[in-house]
Write a protein that binds this DNA or RNA. Structure first.
Length: 323
DNA sequence: AAGGCGGGGAA
DNA sequence: TTCCCAGCCTT
């Protein structure tokens, strides 16, 4: 959960998660949909899928025992260098140094590392520095201390160097160039797409589809839609996209709202329409499953944040489009 | 080595 | 708006 996610955000989910899946057996035996529902809103849903797989490997192949050695633990799905080092050092006192965003920032300032931290080439450099610094007598404590230093003192902006316990060793501070480190490669601007989503009504039900299990928002449910093409109105795009994705013929009835949302690699502006089901049998294209549900069943399915931005509007007496 | 993969809090 | 968060996996 903590991968690329702030601790305060994880705290909203962690207790709920371990209450629901208290051990590796319950996690391995759970339905992925239930995991995703508990994970809903936390993002990076591959983490939940990998955690599910890892639990199943532990139960099926390892007799329910979490591997105690680094190499075996590292092989589990979703376990990379950081998680392996963190768990092995903190839980088992094994001498492995962690390198996360905090550690990179601290080390970049301490040693004036000029390699951009968002380039893969920097990983080896920071890992070697961390390995050299690691206190082998208390590796778990050392790792957490270095991360905590980065989170509380050696912050990205306005670090409080005056209270830093290692300020005497900081090369960036000596040159008064803390703000220049760590170096970061300029990110490319995010492309923005104009898309539509359809709330298709038929009797007292609405139509939702499930995304394929891998990739963006894998396994989540959503109100179907698609990109608006050039020289096409939003309504036209709505009808075309729904026909392409579901084979259903629909009629846009009322404009609901506009939603803006940012993903890791692009941004969307999404126009949402209430639509009447007109005709056709469901034939899915990209989606792997569908449901006709009532609005009050929506909370039984994991939806992406972009959909949650308009879902509340569906339950405010606006769902009556039967006639 | 680069890019895909969420969402939100802080500045 | 921009930055960046206790990273990992695929291409």
């Amino acid at each position: 959960m903590l991968q690329q996610t702030q601790v305060t955000k994880v705290l909203e989910y962690y207790q709920k998660f371990v209450d629901r899946f208290p051990d590796v057996v319950s996690l391995a035996g759970a339905e992925l949909q239930d995991l995703l529902k508990t994970w809903e809103g936390l993002g990076y849903y591959a983490r939940a899928r990998n955690l599910h797989k890892a639990a199943q490997v532990v139960v099926r192949d390892l007799e329910g025992h979490i591997p105690v050695d680094y190499a075996a633990f590292r092989k589990l799905p979703g376990v990379g260098e950081y998680i392996a080092a963190a768990v092995q050092s903190i839980a088992f006192n094994a001498p492995y140094a962690v390198v996360d965003g905090n550690v990179k920032r601290v080390l970049a300032r301490l040693f004036l590392v000029k390699t951009p931290i968002n380039r893969s080439a920097s990983t080896r450099i920071f890992q070697e520095k961390a390995n050299q610094l690691l206190d082998h007598s208390v590796p778990g404590i050392f790792n957490q201390a270095l991360m905590e230093l980065g989170a509380t003192v050696c912050r990205p902006k306005s670090p409080t160097c005056v209270v830093c316990p290692v300020n005497a060793y900081c090369q960036a501070l000596q040159m008064a160039r803390q703000s220049e480190f760590p170096v970061r490669q300029k990110p490319k601007p995010l492309p923005e797409y104009h898309v539509v989503a359809a709330v298709i009504h038929r009797d007292d039900q609405v139509f939702i589809t499930q995304r394929k299990p891998e990739g963006l928002l894998g396994g989540l449910w959503e109100f179907p839609g698609g990109k608006i093409q050039v020289k096409e109105t939003a309504e036209q795009a709505c009808v075309r996209a729904i026909r392409e994705e579901t084979n259903l013929l629909v009629e846009p009835i009322e404009y609901l709202t506009r939603v803006k949302h940012a993903y890791t690699h692009f941004k969307i502006v999404m126009d949402v329409f209430h639509c009447h089901y007109q005709s056709g049998e469901v034939v899915l294209n990209e989606a792997i499953d569908y449901r006709w549900i009532t609005v009050n069943q929506i909370n039984q399915f994991p939806f992406p944040r972009s959909n949650h931005k308009f879902i509340p509007l569906l339950t405010q007496g606006k769902e009556d489009y039967n006639e």
